[in-house]
């Protein structure tokens, strides 16, 4: 809460101005105040989300606004029962809109390419693999506003530089095998961010990357290879003999995970040092790439990953 985001307006005053008409209608027991309460509360809720107002501040403002408006209407002889119902309806709707965020389909609208009123200037789209959406959303909500789209993408109304540490925190809180793919775009181009996170997610999955938070920068090299047919074809040819031997594939991946440290890889594979040396020699004979050279090792890992992408595609 309160991550130092500036609040550009007075929340209490906003609530007072927006809610006044609803309280008046309720006090007079006029028809249709319930519907008005729902639409007003949702609109205000979205606006508070995009202004990044912390939830605690919303709660305080709701309390004081309800007290002030209720007292004013009671003084004017309003119906106490109707006023209490109006206060409850407004508070419930506002909090539900504020927490869920996408009651108006804001997340879906943004992902579909439009930037409705109440949208933030910039969004970081996140796609999380390995944890239930509800758990992830709740974890994010403890830190600040988040929108959940029906496609399962999360929209954080902050730039990537702020979203990255946030995602890393949530990733650590969730624990276990969780992969985050994130990308930032201005509100009108959130659809592109979604495309980017889908691409990152596909690459992270098929390349068997360890759990963590990934940006396109972490996957740029792979995406360049994927988009260059000459290189894909040549890489397929280079690793074809390797792929026929699962033991050697496993050795490459273990060595890669060990950052090229043979002693670590040997322990992971439960094999003797001389065994891994022999296997690495075999790999070099088959591919012309030397797994002892870190860049060749990374290229072998990429080729193995991409061959899985091919198999999936």
């Amino acid at each position: 809460m309160g991550r130092g985001q500036p609040v550009l307006f007075d929340v209490g005053r906003l609530l007072h101005e927006e809610f006044l008409a609803v309280y008046r209608a309720a006090a007079a027991d006029a028809d249709g105040w319930e519907d008005a309460a729902v639409s007003v509360a949702r609109r205000v809720g979205s606006r508070l989300i995009s202004a990044k107002v912390p939830v605690a501040q919303v709660v305080v403002a709701l309390r004081s606004t309800d007290r002030l408006l209720t007292e004013a209407m009671l003084d004017d002889g309003g119906d106490a029962r109707a006023l209490a119902a109006a206060g409850t309806a407004l508070a419930a709707e506002l909090m539900s809109a504020f927490c869920a965020g996408d009651d108006d389909g804001l997340a879906d609208a943004l992902l579909a390419g439009s930037a409705p009123d109440g949208a933030a200037a910039v969004y970081t789209v996140a796609l999380v693999r390995g944890a239930l959406a509800d758990r992830v959303v709740n974890a994010f909500r403890r830190h600040g506003p988040v929108l959940l789209a029906t496609s399962g993408h999360l929209l954080l109304p902050v730039p990537e530089a702020a979203a990255l540490p946030l995602c890393r925190d949530v990733c650590a809180e969730l624990g276990g095998e969780v992969w985050f793919s994130v990308a930032e775009r201005p509100a009108a181009r959130v659809a592109l961010a979604r495309k980017e996170v889908d691409e990152i997610d596909a690459l992270v999955t098929s390349l068997g990357r360890p759990p963590g938070v990934y940006r396109i920068d972490d996957m740029l090299f792979e995406s360049a290879v994927l988009d260059t047919p000459e290189v894909r074809d040549e890489l397929d040819k280079v690793v074809a003999p390797l792929l026929a031997n699962p033991v050697l594939v496993q050795t490459v991946l273990a060595l890669l995970e060990a950052d090229g440290n043979r002693a670590v890889a040997v322990r992971k594979l439960f094999i003797h040092r001389s065994t891994i040396d022999y296997r690495l020699w075999q790999i070099e004979q088959l591919t012309g790439l030397s797994p002892v050279n870190p860049r060749d090792l990374a290229l072998l890992g990429t080729a193995i990953g991409l061959s899985r992408t091919n198999a999936l595609g």
Binding site: A224, V225, T228, E230, V231, E234, L235, R295, L299
Partner: peptide, 10 residues
């Protein structure tokens, strides 16, 4: 030069 080539081409 596979890796560098892929990047130059994109």
């Amino acid at each position: 030069v596979l890796a560098d080539f892929a990047v130059l081409r994109q």
